[in-house]
């Protein structure tokens, strides 16, 4: 549908303003990351003498490298675990009828209705009792169950012909081999989509790491950034370099898989 000319002018004007409001703050932040320290407070958004010093200092003056390693490690392990358990669960529900199926299914999907924030206090106490406080275990293990993943995969399993299981069976593949050899290859697009969402969500997570980390040994990037503020870290060039690096993984994924990322986020509606 084409709008009439005056409406199109209004539309483009609003959209340009919106895009500017998105881009200007980001450009100032990235520009500052490349500024030498005597230009950090200059009103020019970009550096006149670009430098990588800030990126060096964020690594040499702060535990940023450890924060990054913690983010990479815990995000990787957690997402891998979430995918595995979601696949196993969705597979069982898709493939078999068994006593208690409805009840268990309700149990799994019902968990989607209990936001993390409502369970945090007892989990925090449990984590402390298990001596997991300030370790990777605290960041990973309480978050391994992802009912939303089961929910999304179930949607894809539904379009799966039942015969595919039977065919695998006739070929002599047990249920375990059928899962890896027949089912997973067919689920690849859904798994890729789910991985992207889980990765970005986990990488950007702030609340839980804030609760259970206490030293650089286990702090993730997001909590590390808050720590800079806490310590009145006033090297803003280095801080902006840190923010830039922290945003890079998600932006890189977006850059390479633009359409898929946008479609996936929309299809899931998980944000929010």
């Amino acid at each position: 549908m084409r709008l009439s000319a005056p409406w199109r002018v209004v539309g483009h004007t609003i959209l340009l303003a919106l895009c500017l409001s998105v881009l200007v703050p980001l450009l100032i932040a990235v520009g500052t990351a490349f500024k030498p320290s005597n230009e950090v407070y200059s009103i020019l958004p970009w550096p006149t003498a670009p430098t990588l010093d800030n990126f060096v200092r964020i690594f040499t003056d702060t535990p940023f490298a450890i924060y990054t390693w913690n983010s990479v490690g815990t995000t990787g392990l957690r997402v891998a675990g979430q995918l595995l358990f979601a696949v196993l669960t969705a597979y069982a529900f898709a493939r078999w009828d068994f006593p208690g199926r409805e009840l268990l299914f309700a149990l799994v999907l019902g968990a989607m209705m209990i936001p993390h924030q409502l369970t945090m206090i007892p989990i925090y106490i449990l984590v402390a009792e298990l001596q997991w406080f300030d370790t990777w275990r605290a960041l990973i293990i309480p978050n391994l169950a992802m009912p939303f993943g089961v929910f999304l995969l179930r949607q894809h399993f539904r379009s799966f012909p039942k015969e595919i299981f039977d065919a695998a069976e006739i070929d002599g593949a047990g249920h375990w081999r059928a899962l890896w050899l027949v089912v997973l290859p067919n689920l690849r697009p859904a798994l890729a989509a789910l991985t992207i969402i889980l990765f970005i969500d986990t990488w950007n997570e702030y609340f839980w790491p804030l609760l259970v980390t206490d030293t650089p040994e286990s702090r993730t990037i997001q909590v590390g950034i808050r720590q800079f503020l806490e310590e009145d870290f006033d090297d803003y060039g280095a801080l902006m370099a840190g923010l830039t690096l922290a945003s890079l993984p998600a932006l890189a994924i977006f850059f390479f898989f633009q359409r898929q990322v946008m479609d996936t986020f929309v299809a899931s509606g998980i944000k929010g």
Partner: peptide, 27 residues
């Protein structure tokens, strides 16, 4: 067999979603 596949998810949800949820009410 199906229960083996479901076991990890059910244990995790019990431990880190349902039990804490009830426990919050108690606390």
């Amino acid at each position: 067999v199906p229960y083996y596949y479901l076991a990890p998810m059910v244990v995790l949800l019990g431990l880190f979603t349902y039990w804490p949820f009830v426990h919050t009410v108690y606390l």
